[in-house]
Protein backbone atom coordinates (compact mmCIF):
# COMPACT_ATOMS: atom_id res chain seq x y z
CA UNK A 1 0.00 0.00 0.00
CA UNK A 2 1.33 3.40 -0.96
CA UNK A 3 1.28 6.59 1.11
CA UNK A 4 -1.50 8.23 -0.94
CA UNK A 5 -3.79 5.26 -0.49
CA UNK A 6 -3.13 5.10 3.25
CA UNK A 7 -3.61 8.87 3.62
CA UNK A 8 -6.83 8.58 1.59
CA UNK A 9 -8.21 5.82 3.78
CA UNK A 10 -7.24 7.68 6.95
CA UNK A 11 -8.93 10.85 5.65
CA UNK A 12 -12.04 8.83 4.87
CA UNK A 13 -11.95 7.34 8.35
CA UNK A 14 -11.49 10.81 9.85
CA UNK A 15 -14.50 12.13 7.92
CA UNK A 16 -16.70 9.38 9.35
CA UNK A 17 -15.35 10.01 12.86
CA UNK A 18 -16.04 13.75 12.56
CA UNK A 19 -19.60 13.01 11.55
CA UNK A 20 -20.12 10.46 14.32
CA UNK A 21 -18.59 12.91 16.78
CA UNK A 22 -21.08 15.57 15.77
CA UNK A 23 -24.03 13.19 15.93
CA UNK A 24 -23.00 11.25 19.02
CA UNK A 25 -21.66 13.99 21.28
CA UNK A 26 -23.49 17.11 20.13
CA UNK A 27 -26.61 15.03 19.43
CA UNK A 28 -27.25 17.04 16.29
CA UNK A 29 -27.37 16.20 12.62
CA UNK A 30 -28.19 19.74 11.49
CA UNK A 31 -26.82 20.33 8.00
CA UNK A 32 -26.21 16.61 7.41
CA UNK A 33 -28.04 15.07 4.45
CA UNK A 34 -29.78 11.81 5.31
CA UNK A 35 -30.11 11.20 1.56
CA UNK A 36 -26.34 11.21 1.12
CA UNK A 37 -25.86 8.98 4.17
CA UNK A 38 -28.42 6.47 2.88
CA UNK A 39 -26.68 6.45 -0.49
CA UNK A 40 -23.33 5.77 1.19
CA UNK A 41 -24.86 2.89 3.17
CA UNK A 42 -26.08 1.47 -0.15
CA UNK A 43 -22.67 2.10 -1.76
CA UNK A 44 -20.86 0.08 0.92
CA UNK A 45 -23.51 -2.65 1.08
CA UNK A 46 -23.21 -3.25 -2.70
CA UNK A 47 -19.44 -2.80 -2.93
CA UNK A 48 -18.43 -5.01 -0.03
CA UNK A 49 -20.38 -8.11 -1.08
CA UNK A 50 -16.95 -9.74 -1.38
CA UNK A 51 -16.37 -9.39 2.35
CA UNK A 52 -17.72 -12.91 2.81
CA UNK A 53 -16.25 -14.46 -0.35
CA UNK A 54 -12.74 -13.04 -0.70
CA UNK A 55 -10.13 -12.40 1.95
CA UNK A 56 -7.65 -9.66 1.04
CA UNK A 57 -6.12 -8.60 4.36
CA UNK A 58 -7.08 -7.93 7.96
CA UNK A 59 -6.75 -4.21 7.23
CA UNK A 60 -9.15 -4.51 4.28
CA UNK A 61 -11.76 -6.50 6.21
CA UNK A 62 -11.60 -4.25 9.28
CA UNK A 63 -11.95 -1.07 7.20
CA UNK A 64 -14.88 -2.53 5.28
CA UNK A 65 -16.62 -3.40 8.56
CA UNK A 66 -15.97 0.11 9.86
CA UNK A 67 -17.43 1.78 6.76
CA UNK A 68 -20.43 -0.53 6.70
CA UNK A 69 -21.08 -0.18 10.43
CA UNK A 70 -20.60 3.57 10.55
CA UNK A 71 -22.73 4.34 7.50
CA UNK A 72 -25.66 2.25 8.73
CA UNK A 73 -25.39 3.60 12.27
CA UNK A 74 -25.35 7.21 11.00
CA UNK A 75 -28.55 6.49 9.03
CA UNK A 76 -30.07 4.86 12.11
CA UNK A 77 -29.16 7.85 14.30
CA UNK A 78 -30.71 10.40 11.93
CA UNK A 79 -33.88 8.40 11.36
CA UNK A 80 -34.51 6.94 14.79
CA UNK A 81 -32.51 8.51 17.61
CA UNK A 82 -34.95 10.33 19.88
CA UNK A 83 -32.85 13.53 20.14
CA UNK A 84 -30.77 13.50 16.95
CA UNK A 85 -33.70 13.05 14.58
CA UNK A 86 -35.26 16.31 15.76
CA UNK A 87 -32.31 18.31 14.39
CA UNK A 88 -32.64 16.79 10.92
CA UNK A 89 -33.40 19.43 8.24
CA UNK A 90 -36.07 17.34 6.58
CA UNK A 91 -37.65 20.17 4.62
CA UNK A 92 -34.30 21.25 3.14
CA UNK A 93 -33.00 17.75 2.37
CA UNK A 94 -35.29 17.12 -0.56
CA UNK A 95 -33.00 15.53 -3.15
CA UNK A 96 -34.64 12.40 -4.54
CA UNK A 97 -32.42 9.29 -4.25
CA UNK A 98 -33.86 7.45 -7.18
CA UNK A 99 -32.76 10.19 -9.57
CA UNK A 100 -29.22 9.05 -8.75
CA UNK A 101 -29.82 5.35 -8.08
CA UNK A 102 -31.68 4.44 -11.27
CA UNK A 103 -29.23 6.00 -13.76
CA UNK A 104 -26.30 4.45 -11.83
CA UNK A 105 -27.94 1.01 -11.94
CA UNK A 106 -28.68 1.31 -15.67
CA UNK A 107 -25.12 2.45 -16.35
CA UNK A 108 -23.73 -0.44 -14.29
CA UNK A 109 -25.88 -2.90 -16.24
CA UNK A 110 -24.42 -1.64 -19.51
CA UNK A 111 -20.92 -0.47 -18.63
CA UNK A 112 -18.97 -2.98 -16.52
CA UNK A 113 -15.98 -5.27 -16.78
CA UNK A 114 -17.85 -8.54 -16.31
CA UNK A 115 -21.54 -9.38 -16.34
CA UNK A 116 -21.84 -11.13 -13.00
CA UNK A 117 -24.02 -10.14 -10.05
CA UNK A 118 -21.09 -9.21 -7.83
CA UNK A 119 -19.31 -7.28 -10.57
CA UNK A 120 -22.39 -5.28 -11.63
CA UNK A 121 -23.14 -4.43 -7.98
CA UNK A 122 -19.53 -3.40 -7.47
CA UNK A 123 -19.67 -1.17 -10.57
CA UNK A 124 -23.01 0.27 -9.41
CA UNK A 125 -21.37 1.18 -6.10
CA UNK A 126 -18.60 3.05 -7.92
CA UNK A 127 -21.05 5.08 -10.00
CA UNK A 128 -23.29 5.75 -7.03
CA UNK A 129 -20.42 6.82 -4.79
CA UNK A 130 -19.37 9.32 -7.46
CA UNK A 131 -22.67 11.20 -7.14
CA UNK A 132 -23.75 10.33 -3.57
CA UNK A 133 -22.39 13.64 -2.22
CA UNK A 134 -24.81 15.69 -4.35
CA UNK A 135 -27.72 15.78 -1.85
CA UNK A 136 -25.21 16.91 0.81
CA UNK A 137 -23.81 19.67 -1.42
CA UNK A 138 -27.33 20.87 -2.24
CA UNK A 139 -28.19 20.92 1.46
CA UNK A 140 -25.01 22.89 2.26
CA UNK A 141 -25.96 25.42 -0.35
CA UNK A 142 -29.38 25.85 1.24
CA UNK A 143 -28.00 26.06 4.77
CA UNK A 144 -27.06 29.64 5.52
CA UNK A 145 -24.66 28.88 8.34
CA UNK A 146 -22.58 25.76 7.89
CA UNK A 147 -21.13 24.61 11.21
CA UNK A 148 -17.45 23.70 11.44
CA UNK A 149 -17.92 19.96 11.85
CA UNK A 150 -20.19 19.65 8.81
CA UNK A 151 -17.74 21.71 6.74
CA UNK A 152 -14.83 19.55 7.91
CA UNK A 153 -16.76 16.37 7.18
CA UNK A 154 -17.30 17.35 3.54
CA UNK A 155 -13.73 18.65 3.24
CA UNK A 156 -12.28 15.36 4.53
CA UNK A 157 -14.48 13.34 2.16
CA UNK A 158 -13.27 15.42 -0.78
CA UNK A 159 -9.66 15.10 0.35
CA UNK A 160 -10.06 11.32 0.54
CA UNK A 161 -11.22 11.22 -3.09
CA UNK A 162 -8.38 13.47 -4.23
CA UNK A 163 -5.80 11.26 -2.49
CA UNK A 164 -7.20 8.17 -4.22
CA UNK A 165 -6.42 9.78 -7.57
CA UNK A 166 -2.78 10.25 -6.54
CA UNK A 167 -2.84 6.62 -5.39
CA UNK A 168 -3.98 5.49 -8.86
CA UNK A 169 -1.32 7.60 -10.57
CA UNK A 170 1.31 6.05 -8.29
CA UNK A 171 0.01 2.51 -8.88
CA UNK A 172 -0.15 3.08 -12.63
CA UNK A 173 3.58 3.75 -12.70
CA UNK A 174 4.64 1.14 -10.13
CA UNK A 175 2.38 -1.85 -10.83
CA UNK A 176 2.19 -3.74 -14.12
CA UNK A 177 -1.15 -3.61 -15.99
CA UNK A 178 -2.82 -1.31 -13.52
CA UNK A 179 -5.49 0.13 -15.81
CA UNK A 180 -8.99 0.52 -14.44
CA UNK A 181 -11.00 2.96 -16.51
CA UNK A 182 -14.32 2.59 -14.72
CA UNK A 183 -12.82 3.14 -11.28
CA UNK A 184 -10.72 6.06 -12.48
CA UNK A 185 -13.41 7.93 -14.41
CA UNK A 186 -15.96 7.52 -11.60
CA UNK A 187 -13.31 8.65 -9.10
CA UNK A 188 -12.32 11.72 -11.10
CA UNK A 189 -15.97 12.73 -11.61
CA UNK A 190 -16.54 12.35 -7.88
CA UNK A 191 -13.53 14.52 -7.03
CA UNK A 192 -14.57 17.23 -9.51
CA UNK A 193 -17.92 17.56 -7.74
CA UNK A 194 -16.01 18.87 -4.72
CA UNK A 195 -14.14 21.56 -6.69
CA UNK A 196 -16.67 24.29 -6.01
CA UNK A 197 -16.94 23.36 -2.33
CA UNK A 198 -13.14 23.35 -1.96
CA UNK A 199 -12.93 26.81 -3.46
CA UNK A 200 -15.33 28.30 -0.90
CA UNK A 201 -13.87 26.20 1.93
CA UNK A 202 -10.37 27.64 1.34
CA UNK A 203 -11.72 31.15 0.81
CA UNK A 204 -13.54 31.05 4.15
CA UNK A 205 -10.46 29.58 5.83
CA UNK A 206 -8.15 32.21 4.31
CA UNK A 207 -10.44 35.08 5.27
CA UNK A 208 -11.29 33.47 8.61
CA UNK A 209 -15.04 33.75 8.05
CA UNK A 210 -17.81 31.22 8.41
CA UNK A 211 -18.24 28.90 5.44
CA UNK A 212 -21.19 29.81 3.27
CA UNK A 213 -21.91 28.58 -0.24
CA UNK A 214 -23.53 30.98 -2.72
CA UNK A 215 -27.11 30.10 -3.63
Amino acid sequence: MNIFRLAGDMTHLASVLVLLLKIHTIKSCAGVSLKTQELYALVFATRYLDIVTDFISVYNTVMKLIFLGSSFSIVWYIRHHRVVRRSYDKDQDTFRHYLLMIPCMLLALFVHEKFTFKEVMWTFSLYLEAVAILPQLVLLQRTRNIDNLTGQYVFLLGAYRGLYIFNWIYRYFTEPHFVHWITWIAGVVQTLLYADFFYYYFESWKNNVRLQLPA
Binding site: R5, H12, D50, M63, E175
Partner: peptide, 10 residues
Protein backbone atom coordinates in the same frame (compact mmCIF):
# COMPACT_ATOMS: atom_id res chain seq x y z
CA UNK B 1 -7.49 -6.25 -15.99
CA UNK B 2 -7.02 -8.12 -12.79
CA UNK B 3 -9.81 -8.37 -10.20
CA UNK B 4 -7.62 -8.58 -7.17
CA UNK B 5 -5.91 -5.29 -7.93
CA UNK B 6 -8.79 -2.83 -7.65
CA UNK B 7 -10.75 -4.96 -5.23
CA UNK B 8 -8.05 -4.37 -2.61
CA UNK B 9 -9.20 -0.74 -2.51
CA UNK B 10 -12.01 0.52 -0.35
Amino acid sequence: SNDTITKDEL
